[in-house]
Design a protein around this nucleic acid. Structure first.
Lengths: 223, 223
DNA sequence: ACCTGAACACCGTTCAAGT
DNA sequence: ACCTGAACACCGTTCAAGT
């Protein structure tokens, strides 16, 4: 055993898959998915890019692992009193997770090669609906519409060029200035009357749509 | 005027923005968004990559223009008898468009720099709801939930590793073989009882969710 | 007006070689 | 077992120069 290993006990000073994945997520959080390169990631880890290929097959596999890790950050609210509370909390958690890792928005739910965290999340959602008395067919419908909505919303949310309602108003005005008055009268009305005057909140919109969908699912309960 | 110009009247033999965009879409359709490079695109057009920079600012702008063009392919059913028929037909058309251009799925609705086709589409959707008597606030809710659902579904649909129900069954079995029996019991049940036995159809799932959302929107009509 | 050649600063990945 | 150096075949983009 080397002296180095004795100096840092319990902390491996050599690389491993997990460390690479965590560093890759950190790098992507900071500089986006296009800012993530094997060479930069190596630099960040104090190693040449080629070293990464000892721990991972290639960049695709790295990204798959990153996505499954992110998926594992979504809260699974086992203690929720009913399916509706469960799905509501899970949805909010998923939106939070994507807000922290915007680059991941378009990559989740790819359908190909789901990792353990992804599979566990699906399994738990299904369990929740089944135990609430939903049939298999209705469970599939419910899970599908919820996931489409949540990941769709997360993706649009991640791409929003604003976060506060003030910024929303500014951006709306900028868009409106780009086209001559009257070209898009209905859109123009929405922007002036709604986006700028009253406060537009992307999160409120998300919640409204989620409620609409949960109400719809409630009607499937005994079908 | 050159002889060449006389030989091909009405057909410019030099490049222009529109030709570049169309060729780029064709190339992306064939080889995905990662297969689209300025150098390959130049080759396809019989020109050096650098020539493209005379017609477009950079690759980002090219992609923005491609997306707006794709957006223009979505049918706007002016002759629909009511808002519901309008939204149903538009949704189906959007799904078809993304099926033809899977690489575009994750890039539509980016919110930044919407092009004329994108703005026109929004304007028409808003007009449809407003003329049906929806308030401004309810129109925003309805358009938001519909777009999130449609583009979310399009994205998942574009990424599906299967198209027919037979392929769906095969892929489901492959996924199931990857994990030890009983690890994900509820997911396992869905796969064996539903995905493999009865036929799973992604399009049917899309329609089910769309109906659920349209039913929900109908309840907002006089709010 | 429209295109090219050369150049720059990057990529992902392989593979033999080093310790 | 774990990492590196050199190499290959790519990228996007700028800019002076060509016609």
């Amino acid at each position: 055993m080397s002296i180095k290993a004795k100096i840092t006990p319990g902390h491996s000073n050599t690389l491993n898959k997990e460390l690479v994945i965590l560093a890759a997520i950190k790098l992507a959080d900071e500089s986006g998915i296009n800012g993530l390169s094997m060479r930069k990631l190596g630099r960040e880890l104090g190693v040449e890019a080629m070293a990464l290929y000892y721990h991972l097959k290639n960049k695709s596999q790295l990204i798959e692992e990153m996505i499954d890790h992110i998926h594992g950050e979504i809260e699974i609210p086992f203690d929720a009193p009913n399916w509706r509370a469960f799905m509501q909390r899970r949805a909010r958690s998923a939106l939070d997770v994507v807000a922290r890792h915007p680059w991941a928005a378009g990559l989740m739910e790819s359908g190909v090669n789901p990792g353990p965290a992804t599979l566990k999340d699906s399994d738990t959602m299904i369990q929740c609906f089944r135990e609430a008395g939903f049939s298999i067919a209705m469970t599939v419908h419910a899970v599908t519409v919820l996931n489409i909505y949540i990941y769709g919303a997360a993706q649009q949310y991640a791409k929003l060029p604003f976060t506060t309602t003030e910024q929303a108003a500014e951006v709306s005005e900028a868009i409106k200035r780009q086209f001559p008055m009257g070209t898009y009268p209905y859109l123009g009305e929405i922007i002036t009357q709604h986006m700028i005057k009253s406060g537009y909140s992307a999160v409120d919109e998300f919640d409204f749509g989620l409620k609409l969908i949960l109400d719809g699912i409630a009607l499937l309960e005994r079908e």
